[in-house]
Design a protein around this nucleic acid. Structure first.
Length: 902
RNA sequence: GGGGAAUUAGCUCAGUUGGUUAGAGCAUCAGCAUGACACGCUGGGGGUCACUGGUUCGAAUCCAGUAUUUCCCACCA
C-alpha cells in the first residue's frame, strides 16, 4: 500500500485535482432528461472586482449546493459570468487615462471604449480564474459576460419590449446627479451618510415693509441665488400676515413671493423655507404647485453657472458655500450659524454628495409589482433567512420609477434613435428598436447607456440566450429554468434580486398584464434565495480593501489549503448572520482535513488497499460477517444512520453551518474518538468485518464531505487507484438507503444506548483516575455493577476498557468499598487506592453533597406540587422521580465516605 | 421617524414545538510521546442566559416593557 504522509499537504493534491477536474470536463453543463435538473447562476462578479473574503463565502456555499446536488443524482450545473460594471469600470479607466495625461472626454466615445475594452481584457478574467484554485465547480467554458453580443441583445430587447408595453418613458424629472461621474443615478445608488453640517439662518427683507424681515434657515446657502420664493406653513400664525407679500432675495438680489404650502414643517428652524426648485425635490414640488419659475444655478460638474451671478459663477459648490456665507455676513443678513447633523446622499461609486438635478432621463415604471410580491409572500420563492421577505415586500410597496439612463459610455447604449434636426422631446421623432433604423444616416442614437443593473436583471434568462429561441434551446433553458437557488448578499436585494424577479415575471412566457399563481410559478427566476452574511473583522467592521482589514484569499489558501479555508469559512457562517472573520477557524479547517487524512491513513494500516472507486456500499456490506459484529459495530452503524438523517434535515433547511458541525462532530467524536479507539485491537488482528465497518463509515463521510472539501476527499477516494476519477457524481446514500442496506445485518437498536452508557462509564472512570495522585501502574479499578445486565455488558468489554482507560487491572466486586469511587450508569467504580484524607478532599466531598442536596430539595418541592402531577407529562414526572432517587443514593454514599474520613 | 436583526462562558456561536443538573469549539490550566493524527490525546476550571415585569406546575425558550449594539428604509430645509 501507499505510504501516506503524516501530515496532509494540500498544495500537491489541489493542483493535481484542479487541472484534472478541468481536463475531464467534470463541471461542463450536461442535460439528462431522466434526471432532475439543478442549476445555480453565479452572481457575476464585477470585472473591476478583486477577490475578497465575501466572494469566498459566497462561492463556497454555491459550490457546496451544486456538488451536493450531483451526489443526489441530479443533473447539476453552475453557470459563471462577469458583469461589465458600468460606472465602476468607467471610473477606473478614466483614472488610468488621466494618469497618462489623456483627457477621457476629449478622446471621444470610440477611443474611450477601446481603452475600456483593453482594460477589461486585461483584468476582467482574473477573479474567475482565481476561483479555480478554490475548487469551485462551475462550468468555466460557459462563461457569460454582460457585454457579450448575445446577452446584449437580450438587454436591449428587454428595453424595447418594455417601451412598447408602455413601461418605459422619457421625462424631465428630478434625479440624483453625481457631479463627479457626471451621470444620473437610481435612488438605490445613493448612500445616505450622517454629516456634520451647519444650519445657517438668513433674513430676507420684506419688500412691502422695509426694515421688517422674514428669517429662513438653510444648510445650503450657495443655492440662495436659485431661490424663487419663501414658503411658510399656511397654519403658522407667526407668518399669516406675510403670505402674499414679497421679500428680497439677498444674493443676486430679486423680489420673490412669500407663499404658503403644507409641505413646510412649522417647528423646523424658523418655520420659513426658501424655495429653490432646481436643487431640491420638495422645493420643486412646491414650485410646481405655485407655478414658480426654476432657476438652475449649477453646472453638471457641481460648479455654479452664470445664473448664480458673476461673483459666484465658476466656483465649486462647496467653495461657493463659504463665499456666500461671507457675503451674507458682510451685508448683515446672516443672523446665526448652528452646528447641525443631517443625512446627506452620496454617490455610491463617486463617493461625493449627490445633487438633486432636473434632467431629461429614461425611466422605468416597474411592471408586475403585485406578482413580484406574491411570488415571495405566497412562497413560490423562498428566502433564507425568511425575515428578508419583509425588507423585500416593503421595498415593493414603496417602489419608485427607476431612472435607467446613465450619462456614461461604458455599457449598453440605449436603443433609441432621434431623427436628425428634430425635437428630441417629441416621441414622433423617435425610433426604438434593437437593430436601429434602416436609414440610420438620418438618425442619431441616444448618447446614454443603461444602468448596469438594467442589464444584470435579465441574468437568469439572458445567460440562456434569451430572447433567441434557437439559442435558448441549445442552452437548455426549458430544462434549467427556473433555476434552483440564488446565493447572494442582502445588500443587493433591491439592486438585483427584486429586479430579477420582476424581469422573470414580465419576460418569461407570453405577454400578459397580470398573472395567476401557476404562471408566477413558471416565470420566477429561482426557487430559493440564500442570503449570506457580511464578513466583518474582529472589531465588527466590514471587510474592505480600503480599510486594509481583508486578508488576501490566495495567501490564506497557501496557508491553510483550499479545503481548510472552505471548511473554516463555513464553520463561521451561521446562516443569516454577519460573520466575524476569525483566522482561528481556518486553523480548525486545516486541522480537520489533517484529521481526516490520518483517519483514512489509519483505516488503511496493515491492509491491502481497495479504492472506494471500485466498491459500492452493497459490496462492502456483503463483506460483513454478522456474527463478528460487536456492540460498537452495531452502535456506530446505527449512529451513522442517525447522524445522516440529522445532516439531511439541516441541509434541507440550508443550515450549512449546523450541517458542517454535525459532520465534524460525528467524525471526530463518534468515529475517531470512540469507534476507532474501541476497534483498534480487532482491526489490527485483521478482522474483515471491522475493516468493512470502517469502510462503510469512511465511504459515507467522504461522500458527505466532498461538497465541502472536494480536493482531499477526491484524493482519498481515489487513493491507490491508477485510473482516477472525481467522485463528484457518485450517488451518496441517504439515511434511508443506509437503513435498507444494513437491514441484512440485524442491527441491535439497543446498542447505541448501551454504548452511550459505556461512554459515560469510561468518562467518569477516567476522571476518577486522573484525580488520583497515584501512578496508574500501582492501582487497579474495581467495578461493582449495578445489575446483571450491566455486569454482562461490562464483562465482555473488559479488554477494551483496559485500553481505553489505560489500566491493566480491572476487576469486579460486589461490596461497598472504602476507596475513591464514582457512580456511573452501569455501577460504581472504585479506584484501588487508599483515600487521602486531605482537607481539600473533604471540602470537595462536602461541596458535592451540598450540591446534591440542593437538587434533591428542588426535586422534592416539584414532586410535592399537586399541579405538577396533574399537568406535566408522564415522562417528565418519571424523570424527576428517577432523578430524586439517584441523587439521593449518590448523596448517601458520599456521606458514608465522608464519615469514614473522620 | 419606521422596520429588521442581535444580546447565553474570556472569544465565536449552538440551544428544534417551554420539560430532567444550559452545550460545543477556540482560548486558558494540568497531564500525556498511548499502534492514524502534537494540525494530536486525556482531564479540570469557567455562565444570575442584557435588564424588569408577566403567563405557566415549569421560562434561555412565550408575552410586554427597558437598555445596548447593528443593519435597512425615510424629501424637516
Amino acid at each position: 500500500m501507499e505510504v501516506l504522509d503524516k501530515v496532509f499537504v494540500p498544495e500537491q493534491v489541489e493542483e493535481k485535482w484542479t487541472s484534472k477536474w478541468l481536463n475531464d470536463c467534470c463541471f461542463d453543463k450536461t442535460v439528462d432528461d431522466t434526471k432532475e435538473s439543478f442549476c445555480i447562476l453565479m452572481p457575476p462578479p464585477n470585472v473591476t472586482g478583486v477577490l475578497h473574503m465575501g466572494h469566498l463565502l459566497n462561492q463556497t456555499l454555491q459550490d457546496v449546493f451544486v456538488r451536493q446536488a450531483r451526489h443526489c443524482n441530479k443533473c447539476a450545473t453552475w453557470i459563471p459570468g462577469t458583469d461589465h460594471a458600468g460606472i465602476s469600470l468607467q471610473i477606473k479607466v478614466e483614472k488610468e487615462l488621466i494618469e497618462k495625461a489623456i483627457s477621457p472626454r476629449e478622446i471621444g466615445r470610440d477611443k474611450f471604449l477601446e481603452h475600456a475594452k483593453a482594460w477589461r481584457d486585461k483584468h476582467g478574467g482574473i477573479i474567475l480564474s482565481q476561483l479555480k484554485s478554490f475548487g469551485v465547480s462551475c462550468d468555466f467554458k460557459n462563461q457569460v459576460y454582460t457585454l457579450d453580443a448575445s446577452y446584449s441583445r437580450g438587454v436591449l430587447t428587454a428595453f424595447v419590449e418594455l417601451y412598447e408595453r408602455g413601461y418605459i418613458y422619457r421625462g424631465k424629472r428630478m434625479v440624483n446627479w453625481c457631479p463627479k461621474t457626471l451621470t444620473a443615478l437610481s435612488d438605490e445608488e445613493v448612500i445616505m451618510k450622517p454629516q456634520k453640517s451647519k444650519l445657517y439662518y438668513v433674513r430676507y427683507e420684506i419688500m412691502e415693509r422695509p426694515g421688517a424681515f422674514i428669517e429662513i434657515s438653510t444648510t445650503r446657502p450657495e443655492t440662495i441665488m436659485g431661490d424663487v420664493a419663501v414658503a411658510v406653513n399656511p397654519g403658522d400664525e407667526r407668518y399669516k400676515n406675510l403670505v402674499g407679500l414679497h421679500c428680497k432675495r439677498p444674493l443676486n438680489e430679486a423680489e420673490i413671493p412669500i407663499i404658503a404650502d403644507d409641505a413646510v414643517v412649522r417647528d423646523f428652524g424658523t418655520g420659513a423655507l426658501k424655495i429653490t426648485p432646481a436643487h431640491d425635490s420638495v422645493d420643486l414640488a412646491i414650485g410646481q404647485r405655485h407655478n414658480l419659475p426654476i432657476i438652475d444655478i449649477l453646472n453638471a460638474d457641481g460648479t455654479l453657472n452664470a445664473l448664480a451671478g458673476r461673483e459666484f459663477a465658476g466656483l465649486d459648490r462647496f467653495t461657493a458655500r463659504e463665499k456666500t456665507v461671507e457675503k451674507l455676513q458682510a451685508i448683515g443678513t446672516l443672523t446665526k450659524i448652528e452646528e447641525y447633523e443631517n443625512n446627506i446622499g452620496f454617490s455610491e461609486r463617486g463617493d461625493v454628495p449627490i445633487e438633486p438635478r432636473l434632467s431629461e432621463q429614461w425611466f422605468l415604471k416597474y411592471p408586475k409589482i403585485d406578482e413580484a410580491k406574491r411570488a415571495v409572500s405566497e412562497g413560490f420563492i423562498k428566502f433564507y433567512p425568511k425575515h428578508w421577505e419583509k425588507t423585500y415586500l416593503h421595498w415593493l410597496d414603496n417602489i419608485q420609477d427607476w431612472c435607467i439612463s446613465r450619462q456614461l459610455w461604458w455599457g449598453h447604449r440605449i436603443p433609441v434613435w432621434y431623427k436628425k434636426n428634430s425635437a428630441r422631446s417629441d416621441s414622433n421623432n423617435w425610433h426604438v428598436s434593437v437593430d436601429g433604423p434602416s436609414d440610420v444616416e438620418n438618425w442619431e442614437q441616444d448618447e446614454d447607456v443603461l444602468d448596469t443593473w438594467a442589464s444584470s436583471w435579465i441574468w437568469p434568462f439572458g445567460v440562456f440566450g434569451w430572447p433567441d429561441r434557437e439559442k435558448m434551446g441549445k442552452e437548455h433553458f426549458q430544462y434549467f429554468y427556473p433555476t434552483s437557488i440564488l446565493v447572494t448578499g442582502p445588500d443587493i436585494i433591491f439592486f438585483w434580486v427584486a429586479r430579477m424577479i420582476i424581469a422573470g415575471l414580465e419576460f418569461i412566457g407570453p405577454k400578459k398584464k397580470s398573472l395567476n399563481s401557476e404562471e408566477i410559478k413558471e416565470r420566477i427566476p429561482f426557487k430559493s434565495v440564500y442570503f449570506t452574511g457580511i464578513i466583518r473583522d474582529k472589531i465588527g467592521r466590514k471587510m474592505s480593501k480600503s480599510l486594509g482589514n481583508s486578508p488576501e484569499p490566495l495567501d490564506l489558501i497557501a496557508k491553510y489549503g483550499a479545503d481548510g479555508l472552505r471548511f473554516g469559512i463555513l464553520l463561521s457562517a451561521v446562516s443569516g448572520q454577519d460573520l466575524i472573520f476569525n483566522e482561528d477557524n481556518l486553523k480548525l479547517g486545516r486541522n480537520f482535513c489533517n484529521k481526516l487524512w490520518n483517519a483514512f491513513r489509519f483505516s488503511r494500516i496493515n491492509r491491502t488497499y481497495r479504492p472506494y472507486t471500485k466498491i459500492s456500499l452493497a459490496n462492502i456490506v456483503a463483506g460483513i460477517s454478522v456474527k463478528d459484529l460487536d456492540i460498537d459495530d452495531h452502535a456506530i452503524l446505527l449512529n451513522l444512520i442517525k447522524f445522516c438523517s440529522t445532516f439531511e434535515e439541516q441541509v434541507e433547511r440550508f443550515e450549512i453551518n449546523a450541517a458542517v458541525n454535525s459532520i465534524s462532530s460525528f467524525f471526530w467524536n463518534e468515529y475517531c474518538s470512540w469507534y476507532v479507539e474501541a476497534s483498534k485491537a480487532r482491526l489490527k488482528g485483521g478482522n474483515k468485518t471491522v475493516s468493512a465497518v470502517h469502510d462503510i463509515v469512511m465511504r459515507q463521510l467522504l461522500l458527505l464531505l466532498n461538497p465541502f472539501i472536494p480536493f482531499i476527499t477526491d484524493e482519498l477516494w481515489n487513493m491507490g487507484e491508477s485510473d482516477q476519477h472525481s467522485m463528484q457524481n457518485v450517488y451518496c446514500e441517504t439515511s434511508k438507503d443506509l437503513r435498507l442496506a444494513f437491514s441484512i445485518l440485524g442491527l441491535d437498536e439497543t446498542s447505541t444506548d448501551v454504548v452511550a452508557k459505556l461512554k459515560e462509564f469510561l468518562n467518569l472512570s477516567r476522571r476518577l483516575i486522573s484525580q488520583s495522585q497515584e501512578l496508574k501502574e500501582r492501582t487497579s479499578l474495581l467495578i461493582c455493577p449495578k445489575n446483571e445486565t450491566a455486569r454482562r455488558v461490562l464483562d465482555g468489554y473488559i479488554p477494551k476498557l483496559q485500553k481505553l482507560v489505560g489500566m491493566e487491572k480491572i476487576d469486579f466486586t460486589s461490596e461497598i468499598l472504602q476507596f475513591s469511587s464514582v457512580q456511573t450508569p452501569l455501577g460504581t467504580v472504585y479506584l484501588h487506592v487508599e483515600r487521602i484524607n486531605s482537607v481539600e478532599e473533604k471540602k470537595k466531598l462536602t461541596w458535592e453533597i451540598e450540591k446534591l442536596s440542593k437538587l434533591i430539595r428542588l426535586n422534592e418541592i416539584q414532586l410535592s406540587n399537586k399541579e405538577f402531577f396533574s399537568r406535566a407529562p408522564a415522562h417528565i414526572i418519571e424523570g424527576t422521580k428517577r432523578m430524586l432517587r439517584e441523587n439521593t443514593i449518590k448523596r448517601d454514599e458520599l456521606r458514608k465516605i465522608l464519615s469514614t474520613m473522620g
